[in-house]
Design a protein around this nucleic acid. Sequence first.
RNA 1: GCCCCCAUCGUCUAGUGGCCUAGGACAUCGCCCUUUCAAGGCGACGGCGGGGAUUCGAAUUCCCCUGGGGGCACCA
Length: 489
Amino acid sequence: MTDVRVRFAPSPTGTLHIGSARTALYNHLFARHHGGTLVLRVEDTDLKRSRREYELSIVRDLHWLGLQADEGPDVGGPYGPYRQSERAPLYQAGVEKLLESGHAYHCFCTQERLDGLKAQQLAAGLMPTYDRLCRELTAEAAKERIASGEEATVRFFVPQGDVTFDDLIHGPITFSSDVIGDFIIHRTDGGFAYNYAVVIDDAGMHVTHVVRGEDHISNTARQLMLYEALGEEAPHYAHHSLIHGADGGKLSKRHGATSIGEFRDMGYLPSAVVNYLALLSWSPGDDREKLTLEELVSEFDMARVSKSAAIFDLDKLNWLNGLYIRELAAEELSEYIRPYLHEAGLEFDEGQREIVSAAIQPKLVTFGDAPIHAQVFADEPILTASSHLEALDEPGADIAFALLAEALEARDSEYFALEQARMILAQVGDGCRERGIKGKAIFKPLRVALTGCDHGPELFYLIAGLGRSRLLARLHTALGYLAQLGGRS
RNA sequence: GCCCCCAUCGUCUAGUGGCCUAGGACAUCGCCCUUUCAAGGCGACGGCGGGGAUUCGAAUUCCCCUGGGGGCACCA
């Protein structure tokens, strides 16, 4: 396969959706695997709903995922323009060609007549198709009516016969032209129909392989007819399945987050999203689940893409994201979680934030989870729940607290290196053991005294990252509670 | 209604006629590790939608049914 050219063609009527992102990914993987070219084409023929800001956000999200195109409205290229709204002259030329060769004709039917026709056919159990009334008009008659100011559309004259194509994912698919009516390629408002524009564009951009969702399968027959009529060579097609929600229906807002931007904002890593999306409907053929973009590129094979629809499974994305997060170095993680901590009102200096990062790393599913886990490093512990107070009342706890306080007081830095924190903790443990207190018994009270909570990061992280003054204050508070409890009993 | 596509554990998948008493992963549950919670390790649970046909042999091929999805626009 030489000179592979594929395209990703979103309409800028919203932000990049998880489903479109997967289409972009498959295009990217196919192009890169074959050393080909990926072009980005903006399908903004629907002027009412298309917005430039959406185009920009789609490009930004594509970049975030690492799926930048080689040609497109943002980077240019030899076969532009890359926005459909700027390609009208090309479409117009094609329409004229089709009109001249008799592959298209003007139609003056009103919407009312068309609606009635459709209702009639539906009632008769037929596929609604245009009845070719205006096909009977001579070119001269049509010209006169247009000249007299009548509005007209241009319809493609659908040829008789079957249309078959060999889909790279599905294999051979055949449509009978009987179920395809003469469709409009040029609207009365001057706009061009999608199925037509796509053909002019793909042909003009020398696209060799069209990789898109299977909601386009039935469009393919129309497009193939257009290629034939235009005398252009048709590309190969690969129609991948659609993503469904947990209820089996098409993925939509009510299934939760569906746009790439939302996942980015929640604190997902692009590597995890890309990995997950690739695995949805594709597998390397062995047991590997975790693959980088580079690995995906070298392993990707369109023939291995599953035909059946896949249900979006957040649990698995979460698992992958956690996997990638745990791979991060503490200083990287620290940078990633900074904005989330800041937004939650948790401020740490750089060194402390790195300790916090390392401490909470195993617990993170997304970066957005950082604040809830980092909370213990910021707030004063709230020792009110009676169960927690009881946890303090362990024989020897007071001694352990005092030993830790002593060890801390002997040092003058506010924060400690992890190694140092480990040493301090070991020192306390040794001291307890010397006094006949079991090591295991003191850790829980210590944790409760320090955090007010019975679970959380490993103790040495707390000692390293909490800060000496705060540690001491909490220790003294706990000691005070202990004294009260002792007085009561 | 008509046309097209699809069908293996709850979910994503491996499987292309014998290697399948169907493999892996997520989720769930249990155990281990452990100063807690996680993480990690080990294990358990759990599936070829139904019916015919071809074949010595079918998850795998063919047909029918059922179920799901998509399309049938002067949307893309």
